[in-house]
Nucleic acid binder design. Structure first.
Lengths: 243, 243
DNA sequence: GGGGAGAGATGCCGC
DNA sequence: GCGGCATTTCTCCCC
């Protein structure tokens, strides 16, 4: 493999993405400390100076450095070493490279942002627009608001003018979701000086423990799923070309 | 760029890592749904059939598929499409490739596992071995044990034979840590039928809100940091960092 | 497989 | 910067 240190450091100075496949060992020190012995890894340095080290399996990088890291590849005591320093966050990494398998630098043009559907935010939007999903006569006042009462998903009144707090979960609600709702309940009762406040967990399902805790606290549960606008995709993959 | 569909699908059948730099748009549907318009991306398919899609910035993949995904690259209506299907978890992705920048397949040998120091587990070990970090006369009985009382970091008796529950946090303790400890307290008092139980949060720091809640609950705080065995590494970096 | 909890969590938004 | 919270969280361990 033709590989030149000056060439690599030159690439670091450019606004490109570097892909280095190599055999290496790694030492990291920062928020914690880690050691990884010699093995083949994929090293990616992005244009924002994020570093990722990937093994041949697993979805998470085995080591990484955050955006804005400084890099320098040097020959040290006859060994190729990639020094990685992020001074502001006090994170340090040394990658000792014993063999370079391949080296690549890429210019990547991409200004697109992802659009995601089916988040908890989408769920609270849906409930806000279709209050009857909670119950007839529910009148939502606000959604996803950072009030002094806390970060409440949907907040409103029922037909008897009781305050209603709705906590949404896009997955199965667990006891932490119930605790979270209970915390809002306590807070808002104190701050508003009222007692007629109802709390509702809205989620596609709820665990047995969470349901028990919910009942103990006198709270309620509604089975509601996050919106999916394109169920069609799952049913008929062939129609994908329509986008 | 010389690029052959059969060659790519052949690589998929082998136990290697595939790196594809290309311009593409992406549609994902599974736990949620996402759309990403055309742009240059780095696509990695690992030997365990994990897929990662990276943009030129950011530490997280913009899209991904989990281990065990099935892949198939086909020419569809004159367009190159990478179909990704993970039937067991009901996740689907289509990557429409408008230009291939580079394609690489790598054999990677790596059986090493990372050793990490400074975790919460290390903290509880340290306290177990040096109980005086909590207070004189503290006698720990167990650490990190899944008892019927719950998952308690350190569990023991103080010099007056009160039960003591210690909850460790490697970072600043927040009110959720206090809630967690309070939950264990309630549980253990119920199950043991005793009332003389003390709860201690051990963390390098604690937020103002958490400290208030802690006091309200009658719990205690000890400022303890997770162990770092190689502070020397940080000191030695100074001379290396001079470049 | 579900539940519970940690993670070098990350990322977002608001104050 | 910190705080509070969601995440296609992921990962591990135990039941």
């Amino acid at each position: 493999m033709e590989f030149d240190i000056a060439n690599f450091n030159d690439a670091l100075g450019k606004n490109c993405v570097i892909i280095l496949a190599c055999k290496c060992s790694i030492h990291y020190s920062g928020r914690a400390e880690s050691f990884l012995s010699d093995g083949d890894r994929l090293i990616i340095i992005k244009s924002d100076k994020t570093l990722l080290v990937h093994q041949h399996v697993g979805s998470n990088p085995i080591n990484y450095m955050k955006e804005g890291t400084g890099f320098s590849l040097v020959l040290e005591d006859g060994r190729l070493v990639l020094h990685c320093r992020n001074i502001p966050v006090k994170e340090y990494m040394d990658i000792i490279i014993s063999k370079v398998h391949s080296f690549q630098q890429l210019q990547m043009e991409d200004s697109e942002k992802i659009r995601l559907v089916g988040s908890e935010r989408d769920m609270s939007d849906m409930i806000y627009r279709q209050p009857e999903l909670i119950e007839p006569g529910f009148r939502p006042l606000s959604r996803e608001e950072h009030t002094k009462y806390g970060f409440i998903d949907v907040f409103g009144y029922d037909k008897r003018n009781n305050l209603v707090i709705v906590e949404c979960k896009r997955y199965s609600a667990d006891f932490k979701a119930v605790e979270q709702l209970q915390r809002y309940m306590t807070k808002i009762k104190q701050l508003k000086g009222v007692d007629n406040v109802r709390g509702i967990v809205a989620a596609p399902e709820i665990s047995a423990n969470a349901l028990q805790m919910l009942k103990d606290f006198g709270l309620e549960y509604r089975s509601i799923s996050p919106p999916k606008f394109l169920e069609r995709f799952n049913r008929d993959q062939k129609k994908l070309g329509e986008y």
